[in-house]
Amino acid sequence: MAQFTIKDLARELGISPSTVSRALRDHPDISKATKKRVTEAARKHNYQPNQLAQSLQKKRSNTIGVIVPEIRHDFFSTCISGIEEVAYENGYIIMVCQSDEKLEREVINTQALVANRVAGVLIAISSETTKYDHLQGLLDQNVPLVQFDRVVEELSTSKVVVDDYAAAYNAVSHLAESGYKHIGHMAGQEGIALNFRRYEGYRDALRDHGLPYKEKFHLHGGYREDDGRKGAARYLAMDEMPDAILAINDPVAVGLYAAFKDAGLRIPDDVALVGFSDNPVSALIDPALTTVRQPAFEMGRTAATLLMKQFRSEDDTFTPETVILETELQIRGSSRRGGK
């Protein structure tokens, strides 16, 4: 038996094939009543869209490209799970690439995804991405692009981020209110928007609590545990050390934690630590790590949902959106004297 087609649905419902197609894509110009009639008829006849025909017509596949700095990072792997859920619900599959925090690999990844005719791209940029011609190139080729977590603010795309300023401000305020007087910040690499927003939150919280800002306590580095160990070595070499540190993420905080303990420092009595992202390991070390919980799964879902929305929009009606998600400070033993 021949498969039911869009033309068959249109003939049965007395509407045009283009209206059927737009209703199935949940286009905003089609009324809810028409969408309901179309979806009920499609279900009745077990209509399945011809993905191959659609991809040939669009010159794109039903694959979504995802680029993240590294998959082993629990935060990004959870984001990917959220992305995949939305993609699957909408008939897409995902192709995941990792940049390994390198601009060169990120550029190669984008080129490979375009060569595979992906329907769109979701990206969290690498720590080296201060130039973004390759991402502008995607937009110039009309490849839908959504950025999440680490973004290039200058690009006209939809974005999903957390309120990095408020998260850092609240974390430093907690340290100040816990009695710490000399608070440092182990930041990521310069040039990334979220690093600057967290720095601003850190600096303003110090000011508002009457605490000094010491430039030497504000260090830049990478995003991995080894970067935390390197940062700890720099702090330990100072004539005076901070008594508390806000780290750019949990892996860096864990690296600081391990190096300080190896050096004989007590956490949190000699130095308190706060991380960012709430990786599972943060609750397993002793004392457990205070950290900023980011809604990673929701971030992935939201980014993918914005991409689906862009797919359904006509080019001349699409307006980029920025969604800002809230965070929550998980207070644990690493920032409370006595570890209680």
Rank of each mutant, 00 (worst) to 15 (best):
I93A: 09
G120P: 00
D270K: 07
H220P: 11
L138Y: 07
R224T: 10
S335K: 06
G221I: 14
D149T: 01
Y202N: 10
I6M: 13
P242N: 05
D163W: 02
F4Y: 12
G188P: 13
S126T: 09
T34W: 06
N279L: 14
Q48H: 08
L206K: 01
K340E: 01
E177D: 06
T39R: 15
D204Q: 04
A237Y: 14
L13D: 11
S156A: 00
R11D: 04
A119R: 10
T78N: 08
P280K: 02
L122R: 00
A112V: 03
V160G: 01
S334W: 01
D269Q: 08
V118K: 03
S282C: 05
R207S: 03
K36R: 15
G264W: 07
A112L: 07
N90Y: 11
N195M: 12
H185E: 01
A205M: 08
S126E: 01
L265D: 11
I285L: 01
A53C: 04
L325P: 06
R224Q: 07
G255K: 11
E84A: 07
S126Q: 03
R312W: 04
M241S: 04
H45N: 11
A233N: 15
D278I: 15
K131I: 04
L246Q: 07
D208H: 10
H45Q: 09
D278V: 15
K131G: 02
I192L: 14
D239I: 09
L155Y: 02
Y235I: 13
Y88K: 08
Y213Q: 08
F276W: 15
L236Y: 11
D227H: 12
M308T: 00
T290E: 06
L211R: 09
V162R: 02
A259F: 15
A112K: 04
S99H: 02
